[in-house]
Structures are given as structure tokens and as C-alpha cells.
Design a protein around this nucleic acid. Structure first.
Lengths: 208, 208
DNA sequence: CGTACTTTTGAATCGCATCAAATCTGGTGG
DNA sequence: CCACCAGATTTGATGCGATTCAAAAGTACG
């Protein structure tokens, strides 16, 4: 059994697989794996932050994925070796699940296989939303898009602080702060206890 | 059997399922489905462009996904109803596959199930890359990221024109054009016949 | 040969990144 | 309990780069 926050893992994995999992703490700067390594365990970031990166042709590192919560590189589930490095960039707690056992369960447990597909479906959906969001040129539009798609009734909880939210929106925290302030002043948004709330647009002729 | 471009569908689907598929042409403006409809067929965009959208709280439509090639809303595979509209925004050819048959095959054909998972894995990988790309603030960085991650040896084919590429990068076509021009002038990139090519950085001390 | 679309170029404006720094916060050890 | 430190939050000033609007030139297609 994992902590409350990890209910999703509990619900996803077959009961028999849970005992094989381990929750490991990592310090900032640790490395989960290197390019070339053979994938043996699947990593699920419970808290903290992990990036997958590899050196680019232009010298600078190219970031392939940045995860603050969720699986890292499920796509390597069936790869013989990693094509990138897995770096821990903030103090993290990470659940490790043996890949061999996952693969075997996927083959033999069709209910698990079905849940796994559902999980991937949800992930695909979420990522597409995020892509559309990041395509919006202005911070304000990205924020509205976030609240409208990920919030519940225009209410969106901020778990990990504005800075982290800004990173998710692909903007600087300064820009996000100023955007929120401006929207508050216009009465289009409210900062509530640990969250953001959308105010209904006061349409000139809102029908009853 | 589908056209050459659709080899991937041929390879993915079980043989028995292919005859149930239909390739349908759509005009710009057609609607594939509405929010509330029950999903009955899966859509695979062979050419053209489809968007999934729904009205946002702020009035304007919120785009959930924009597809020029690939599945539209696989994530609705197991949903009882659509939560958005599927609109054809450019003359398109779309393959339709009955959902019931897919679900049945997934349950009974574990090899197909495995291929389906691999397909989703690839999609997740691709989407994560795109998210990272869109998080980069400057057009130039997005372009480099694209060439380094999706290109082969720094060579990237432009199939559908600069305008479409610009949309994929989340920038205006004007900005993209100017960016390419500037990089060419600096000798860091070349426009080749129907594609872009990265020039190796002339490091001050490149070892032989 | 005209029409629709893409490509290309220009000019003006605006929003965000960037750099800097003050304030606030929680946590740590003296 | 207080002094201190690391990190997050907040505010300010500046410049760059992208959007936006406009329009010319090129191109595919019926």
C-alpha cells in the first residue's frame, strides 16, 4: 500500500505486484539511469522532480521530459536500452516497479492490461491538452485554458506553489504572478485558500 | 489494405479488423461527432486536419486536440460519450474503425493488445517531447529542439509547408519564416529540397 | 487565366523574459 | 527563543522577440 497520494498506483497495479515495489528517496542531483543502461525498473515520481535529457547536436542538453508526478519513461517499457539520462533535479520520492513483472502481468492479466491502456489513454489526453495550452501565446490564455480544462467548476488547487505552476504553464513565475494580479484586479479571477477560482464573465446580456 | 502512408495502421490492427474499416473523405467544415454522442467508431486522420473542441467558460472555444495525422480521441475508446465536438477544419481523408471490434480484439488478442500499448507509448513519448518543445520561449530554440529530436542526423523533412510547421511549433508563420532566414544567414541551418538541415556547430576547437 | 492559398517582406505594438532586489516564509541550530 | 539561512513570493525597470496587421510576390489548380 502506498501513501494516500498514490491511490492511483494501488488501483492500477495487480495486487500481486505491489509487494515488489519500493519507495526510494533521492537527493537533488542523483541519477536514476544513463543512456545505454538496460531498463529494469519503472519509475513513478511521487514527489519532487525528474528530467529525462540527452546531449543535443548543438552542445546544450535537450530535455525530453520533465515530470513532477507520474511515470517517467513508460515508453521505455519495451526498449532494450535507455536513449537518455534520468536525472533527479529536486529532492524526490520515487516508486520503483520491476519491469519484468509488469510485462508478465500485461501478458497474462487482461484486466490489468485494460487498466494500463486506460492509464495511457488518460495520459495521452492530458498531454494533448497541455500541448494546446502551451500553444497559446499569452500567459492569460494559458491560465484560462488550465482552469477550464483541469479545474472543477473553475476552481483549481495550487498544490506546489506558483513557481511550479509557472513551469507547468511554460512561463516565468514573474509573468504568472503579474498575470494573476491583473486578472484579480479586473475581477475575472480570485485567489482562494491554496487555489485559483474563475469568476463567471459578466456578460452584458446574460440570459436567465 | 490502406495506402502506403497507412502502413502503420496495417501493422497495428489485427488482420480480421481491416475489412471493417472504411476510408471516408470529408470536406472542410464537416463534423465527425458532437459532445454527448456515443463513440462508435475510432477516427484515424490520414490527411487533412481535425480539431476537438468544446465551448469554454469564457465564451471562446477551447481546443482540446488538433490532429493532422493519427488517431483522434483514442482516449475516448472506453468513454460512454464524447465530451467535445470533432470538427473537420480542412479537406480530409479519415479511416474509420468500429470501436466495438477494437475493444473485443484488445480483450482476446493479447498480441494486438501489446501492439496497441506500444502505439500509445510512442504517442506519449511524442507528446512529451512536444510539450518540452513548446515550453521553450524562443522560436529558434523550438526549431532546434524539433530538428534534434524528430530529425534524422539534423535533417528534417517539411511535408506540409512552413505554415503547418509553424502551427506545430506554436508560433506564427511569419515568426518562423524570419527565424529560418536568420539562422540561414548565420550559417547554422540550411533549407534543402523540401526540408531543413542543421549545420554542425563550428566549435572553436572541434577535434578531428 | 483567374482564383485561392502559400510564401515572403515590412512596420508598429505589446507581452514576456531577464536581471535586480526587497519582503516574506519555514526550518535549523546556537 | 532568537538569529540565521534557503527558498518562495512580490515588485520594479529594461529590452528583445513575437504577435499583429498589411500587403506584395509566388504558386498550384480548375
Amino acid at each position: 500500500m502506498f501513501a494516500h497520494a498514490l491511490r492511483e498506483l494501488d488501483d492500477l497495479l495487480p495486487k500481486g505486484l505491489v509487494p515488489s515495489c519500493a519507495e526510494v528517496g533521492y537527493a537533488k542531483g542523483a541519477r536514476l539511469f544513463r543512456a545505454g543502461d538496460k531498463p529494469r525498473t519503472m519509475f513513478f515520481v511521487a514527489s519532487g522532480e525528474v528530467v529525462l535529457e540527452r546531449p543535443g547536436l548543438q552542445g546544450a542538453a535537450v530535455i525530453l521530459q520533465r515530470t513532477r508526478r507520474g511515470f517517467v519513461g513508460e515508453a521505455s517499457l519495451k526498449s532494450p536500452r535507455y536513449h537518455c539520462d534520468g536525472q533527479v533535479v529536486a529532492k524526490s520520492k520515487i516508486i520503483q516497479i520491476p519491469i519484468a513483472e509488469i510485462l508478465q502481468s500485461l501478458d497474462t492479466d487482461s484486466a490489468f492490461s485494460s487498466r494500463w491502456i486506460s492509464m495511457l489513454n488518460k495520459e495521452v489526453k492530458r498531454l494533448r491538452l497541455q500541448c494546446e495550452r502551451l500553444s497559446l501565446p499569452r500567459v492569460q490564455d494559458r491560465l484560462f485554458h488550465l482552469l477550464e480544462t483541469e479545474g472543477t467548476d473553475g476552481l483549481f488547487p495550487i498544490e506546489t506553489g506558483i513557481k511550479s505552476l509557472a513551469a507547468e504553464l511554460g512561463v516565468t513565475h514573474e509573468a504568472l504572478y503579474r498575470c494573476i494580479y491583473a486578472l484579480e484586479k479586473q475581477g475575472r479571477m480570485e485567489r482562494t485558500q491554496g487555489g485559483l477560482k474563475l469568476c463567471p464573465p459578466a456578460g452584458p446580456h446574460t440570459p436567465i
